[in-house]
Design a protein around this nucleic acid. Structure first.
Lengths: 202, 202
DNA sequence: TAGTTGTCGAGACCTTGTGTCTCGACAAGT
DNA sequence: ACTTGTCGAGACACAAGGTCTCGACAACTA
């Protein structure tokens, strides 16, 4: 039997096509003209056959989520100012500034909607969200180690107070998302942490 | 000219059909089997022709949003315990308890996704969100009048910390949403308010 | 009571979008 | 040279949103 693992033969995956697909996906998602991103437009804009997309991704949502996750938060540095408030303000400013831009917000809105329908996209979203949360969670953890946050505090909830506000405003669009809001929220969360520390618990 | 406003003639709108459509819409949205609600299934389940739906609503999303908004938050009482923390805990417990139920969460997820695609649904969502926010905003405003929240505090941001956490967890599903989380967030927000009051600003 | 108007359920129909299948061309390996 | 698997292109099947038409009939007017 030649059943043993055969070494790979045949043409390999075209990396240029992969990059073109992911890049074009972000571009199309960023158009906030309301027109949803279709597979046909994606394939056409990337100069690629539809089958090339479905050969490597299980669904449209999976492509969009991978494209989004690759970009979002790529350039958010983890600050180290020495204080909780300083770190929070720096991190939130960079994060809100990124998510608040019209085109980026459009990408986020579209992908979150996609994640509600496509199971593959949903799984990608969970992974992406977890990766972003862990960064902020680490920042808060270090503050707790420095004694700036009570040991019993619910860090996961604090993280969600940040990303909750962000996503909620991105999705509904009832309030802006910029430097002022980042500063205000950073202040609110450090106050919250300080209160729990000093007060003792009520 | 018989150009003057002619009194209405002809058969009137069937109220029973309207109710059946809205009721069935919520039922279908509540199925969290991932299957999206289709117009055909909605019409069939309501025992109604498709045209009857499109005669009264501009799009599928508009129906779904109206059905959701009619239900969500209908039984959330506005508490009056006399303290910010008491009011918050009561309100958040009721709210999180409602949104955290599997079926209700499914409705919220589906409608928020719909609101990202359908402009009519989006408008309904804005209105709905505003109505819910105003209730909580009123609660906070009364606390501020009592001197429990600083005059300069950003009430809108506090409101969004609540609904942000709620929607974020409903949409992503990475953390639960129940009494414990409501209590923790109520505590966090009252601490936040108290810190701003006493501390003065840092 | 007779006539008019507009809604009703039902379903054919058009359009758009997802995902599959097939084709000939060709690139990377043996 | 030969095999294998990817490539772009496009036909295809299928599902869903929304429009149009039909005969039935209910509510109103005269």
């Amino acid at each position: 039997m030649s059943d043993r693992r055969r070494p790979h033969t045949g043409r390999r995956r075209n990396e240029a096509a992969r990059r073109a697909i992911l890049d074009v996906a972000v571009d199309l998602l960023a158009r906030d003209d309301g027109a949803p991103v279709t597979i046909d437009s994606l394939a056409a804009a990337a100069g690629v056959g539809k089958q090339t997309i479905y050969r490597w991704w299980p669904s449209k949502g999976a492509v969009l989520l991978e494209a989004m996750a690759e970009r979002a938060g790529a350039d958010i540095a983890v600050p180290d100012t020495g204080t909780l408030h300083g770190d929070l303000e720096a991190f939130l400013t960079a994060t809100f500034r990124g998510a608040g831009r019209r085109l980026t917000a459009s990408v986020l809105r579209n992908t979150m909607a996609e994640a509600q329908r496509d199971p593959h996209a949903r799984e990608h979203m969970r992974t992406f969200v977890e990766s972003r949360r862990s960064v902020l969670s680490g920042l808060l953890g270090r503050a707790r180690d420095r004694g700036e946050i009570a040991v019993g505090a619910d860090l996961a909830l604090m993280v969600d107070q940040v990303y909750g506000v962000l996503w909620y405003r991105v999705l509904v669009g009832h309030e802006p998302l910029g430097d002022a809001q980042a500063a205000e929220l950073a202040r609110a969360l450090s106050d919250q942490a300080a209160a729990r520390l000093g007060g003792g618990g009520r």
